[in-house]
Simulated scan of single mutants.
Amino acid sequence: MSDSRLLLHARAAGRAFLLPLSELREVVPGAPVAPIPSGPPGIQGVVLHHGEFLPVLDWGVVGGDPDHAAPPTVLAVLRPRLGLPLEGVAGTVEAPEGGLNDSPAEDAWRPILAGLCQLEDQELPVLDADRLLALLHRLRKAR
């Protein structure tokens, strides 16, 4: 099994999704997020991580479903130094050989997705960290 094909199966903002392990530094226990007054859009605040402040994503910026979301229990730390609060982690899976399918145009997460991955009987979105960061940069510039 190639490391480049391994995906973390997680849940956040009321939605199950996949995240390539190659974009992940680590998954750590959740910690209280300290808000930043007048902070950048899309960032709910920071946590202290290995002695440094780590910005934490506000899932609301990508159209999460707060009505069906559980409180975060863990934090996925991406390589580009961004924390993703997760409701849970189901484990890792291997991406199928066939590649990814296009996400529907009406999917609120489409701007941050690499595509959809067919795993057995379900199709799960695959988060693209570079697209997520690009969205956050666009939000900051539009501010």
Rank of each mutant, 00 (worst) to 15 (best):
S2N: 11
S2D: 15
S2W: 10
S2G: 10
R5T: 07
R5H: 01
L6G: 08
L7C: 03
L8H: 06
H9D: 11
A10Q: 03
R11G: 02
R11P: 00
R11Q: 13
R11M: 08
A12Q: 02
A13R: 04
A13K: 06
A13D: 05
G14Y: 03
G14S: 00
R15P: 03
A16Y: 03
A16C: 13
F17A: 15
F17W: 13
F17T: 00
L18E: 02
L18F: 00
L18A: 01
L19D: 01
P20I: 07
P20L: 09
L21F: 05
L21S: 06
L21A: 03
L21Q: 06
S22R: 05
E23Q: 15
E23H: 14
R25W: 10
R25Q: 14
E26I: 01
E26C: 02
E26T: 07
V27G: 07
V27D: 01
V27C: 04
P29V: 11
G30H: 07
G30M: 14
G30F: 10
G30S: 08
G30K: 08
A31E: 15
A31W: 14
A34W: 03
P35Y: 09
I36V: 09
I36H: 11
P37S: 10
S38N: 15
G39F: 11
G39T: 09
G39D: 09
P40S: 12
P41K: 12
I43G: 08
Q44E: 13
G45E: 01
V47M: 05
L48C: 10
L48M: 09
L48G: 12
H49R: 07
H49N: 10
H49W: 14
H50K: 13
H50V: 08
E52S: 14
F53I: 13
L54T: 06
L54Y: 01
L54Q: 00
P55W: 06
P55I: 03
V56R: 05
V56K: 02
V56H: 01
L57G: 00
L57R: 08
D58W: 10
D58L: 10
W59F: 12
W59N: 00
G60T: 09
G60D: 12
G63V: 05
G63L: 07
D65S: 01
P66C: 00
D67N: 12
H68M: 01
H68P: 04
H68N: 14
H68W: 03
A70F: 10
A70H: 14
P71N: 09
P71Y: 12
P72H: 13
V74E: 15
A76F: 04
A76K: 01
A76T: 03
A76M: 09
V77R: 02
V77L: 07
V77I: 11
V77S: 00
L78N: 04
L78F: 01
R79E: 15
P80L: 13
P80W: 13
R81S: 14
L82H: 02
G83D: 15
L84V: 00
P85M: 04
P85T: 07
P85F: 11
P85G: 11
P85C: 10
L86C: 12
G88D: 11
V89C: 13
